[in-house]
Design a protein around this nucleic acid. Structure first.
Length: 608
DNA sequence: GTAATCACG
DNA sequence: ACGTACGTGATTACT
């Protein structure tokens, strides 16, 4: 590797294991030791899941310990895990969880001894490959920083799986523990991680990224991992019934669509052709030139507004109506209900992954299942998620956090006065312009203008989103700039700073946010979104400090979802609000808790 | 693998 | 010079 010989050791007997233990003692005295695991797959909580190997390594040697063989192999690995003072792991939350569940070394024990190289890489450059960054996978990082010809250990192994008659999914469980490529690659990942760490560290030092930022991200990763271990309770009986109901509904509407020649309601081409045959004219095009047949187009043809309410403008097109219903039922079933049932464990719980640094702004994402994106227009899907027995759901939201962050970061004087006065900021703005005679429509227009400032949008988009005329919105933009001139000045300043810094904006906590050269206006959004994310991060640390971690279930950008004992719900509500209340450069950041019933759905639409 | 679509804050 | 809504995850069709 990088011109040097490295050695992968695969102990076969007690003498070999003794040698490993002696090596680990020497290596640990020199510095941190890289750690990795191989398992049967990603669903750590599924039945029959197995930990197969545990690997330790430094820059020249790796040891692949066959945990699966049990006996002395397991004992040696377990002792190593328990005693090793400092480990390097690439994507630690996954290995923490595996080791917690299958090797009986808790997250609480291992996380304080861990440096995660993926966190360091994301602090250097948070962009994904499709955004022009390296991404944070071990392979591209190794190729860039360690050795351009570093093997793609995951990808190459997939090819080995295929040659053995396995698939990408079945290979991890099926491959023989003694397979040389399996052991070679298991060990190499450790060596790559060991070599990556000092390079990432020196890059972070070069860019002046404070160590405290890395420490903070490791705390959040640990807390997210503990949340994943606990998981959320699923109402399995309800979920199964809902699965059947939605399947029936999707099939019924698909049958209706078939009468108009549409075999597959997800084929835009078929729908466009059928609608054209019915005499509808479809004028909108996607960016690649295809006929646009999305929800907004179909809703208009079905004589419905964006909330599906009847418009009374035209005769509803029956095909558009059938496609809308079939697609919604199909999407809700497949993306949400099926994933709940596919990932639920033997105790009726789902354990979503929280990626604490997923977005280029640092925002978190939640996957398998994607609990941040459940439909909010209806309680039906969220109804599947329950508080614990005797508990209720508690949801605590930051109030208009991105507007507050904008006021704070840009130093917007009058907007700050509004927040200090406890005003609804959009109403406050409307009143400043129109006086006490302002209307609900004025508030909506100024809300759209404010959102546009945070997102970096233009007059046309803001008008379209709010339903205001372009003339009204253009006037609102001009008034906004007159009332709050600091926003434009801050935008120009931040873009200038970023240009002087190699097109990287450094946010309020020192997070590096690369800017696209042709979209430098996005810096306002990056500044606001990333600072709001870090306020939630700080709130999460406050929650742990306040002893709320056992109740915390999910983080959704500006919201914390919890399961709390019913009789103490009011007390918990005040505690969560306290943890999410803070000051940002003189602007109050506030939060409001809402106490629900047993299911998450109880907070959405009809009681459940 | 890419495009289109649709779910969220 | 002008103007640009921002950030995600998941599924399906199609090549």
């Amino acid at each position: 590797m990088a011109g040097e010989t490295v050695t992968i050791h695969v102990p076969q007997d007690a003498d070999d294991l003794e040698e490993f233990t002696a090596w680990l003692r020497r290596a640990s005295a020199r510095g941190p030791v890289a750690l990795d695991t191989e398992t049967t797959g990603l669903d750590v909580f599924s039945a029959g899941y197995r930990l197969r190997t545990v690997q330790f390594g430094d820059r020249s040697d790796a040891w692949v310990i066959h945990w699966e063989r049990g006996g002395p192999f397991r004992s040696a690995a377990w002792r190593a895990l328990e005693t090793v003072p400092h480990v390097l792991i690439h994507n630690a939350p996954f290995d923490w969880l595996v080791i917690d569940r299958h090797a009986e070394i808790s997250i609480e024990s291992l996380a304080p001894r861990t440096t995660d190289t993926r966190i360091k890489a994301a602090l250097l450059d948070p962009r994904q490959p499709q955004e022009g960054g390296l991404g944070t996978a071990l392979k591209p990082l190794s190729a860039a920083y360690v050795d351009p010809s570093a093997p793609d250990t995951q990808g190459d192994l997939t090819a080995v799986f295929r040659s053995l008659g396995y698939t990408k999914e079945t290979g991890w469980a099926g491959i023989d523990l003694r397979h040389p490529t399996y052991n070679l690659y298991a060990g190499l990942d450790c060596i790559l991680t060991a070599r990556l760490d000092p390079i990432l560290t020196s890059r972070l030092e070069y860019f002046g990224v404070r160590g405290a930022l890395g420490h903070y991200e490791h705390q959040l990763a640990r807390i997210a991992s503990i949340m994943q271990r606990r998981g959320l309770l699923l109402d399995e009986e309800y979920t199964r019934e809902l699965d059947a109901t939605l399947a029936q509904e999707a099939a019924n509407y698909a049958d209706k669509a078939a009468r108009y020649g549409v075999d597959s309601v997800n084929s835009t081409r078929q729908i466009a052709e059928a609608l054209a045959g019915m005499g509808e004219s479809l004028t909108e095009r996607t960016s690649s030139g295809a006929v646009r047949v999305d929800k907004s187009v179909l809703l208009a043809l079905a004589d419905r507004d964006l909330q599906w309410a009847r418009l009374g403008i035209r005769t509803p097109n029956p095909l558009a109506e059938a496609v809308l219903h079939a697609k919604r039922s199909g999407k809700w079933r497949q993306t949400y209900v099926r994933t709940f049932l596919d990932t639920v464990d033997a105790d009726g719980r789902v354990h979503p992954f929280t990626h604490t640094m997923a977005a280029r702004t640092g925002r978190m994402s939640v996957t398998r299942p994607a609990l941040q994106t459940l439909p909010s227009s209806d309680h039906m899907i969220r109804r599947c998620i329950l508080a614990e027995a005797g508990h209720v759901i508690l949801s605590t939201d930051f109030q208009a956090v991105e507007m507050r962050v904008l006021a704070a970061l840009a130093g917007v004087k009058r907007m700050t006065e509004g927040f200090l006065a406890g005003a609804d900021i959009h109403e406050f703005t409307a009143r400043l312009v129109k006086g006490d005679a302002f209307t609900a429509k004025d508030r909506k227009t100024y809300k759209g203008a404010g959102f546009s400032k945070v997102y970096g949008g233009g007059v046309a988009t803001a008008a379209r989103q709010t339903g205001a005329s372009e003339e009204d919105m253009a006037r609102a933009f001009a008034e906004y700039d007159r009332l709050y001139p600091e926003i434009r000045r801050a935008s120009a300043r931040w873009q200038r700073e970023a240009r002087g810094n190699g097109m990287v904006f450094v946010n309020a906590v020192g997070r590096r946010l690369p800017l696209d050269r042709d979209r430098s206006y996005a810096v306002v959004n990056y500044a606001c979104q990333s600072a709001a994310r870090d306020l939630l991060g700080q709130a999460v640390l406050n929650m742990e400090e306040a002893g709320l971690l056992d109740s915390l279930r999910l983080l959704i950008h500006d919201e914390a979802l919890a399961s709390v004992p019913k009789k103490d719900a009011e007390e918990y509500a005040r505690e969560y609000e306290r943890c999410m209340t803070m000051d940002l450069y003189g602007v109050p950041i506030t939060a409001e808790a809402e106490i629900g019933g047993r299911s998450w759905g109880s907070l959405y639409g009809a009681a459940a």
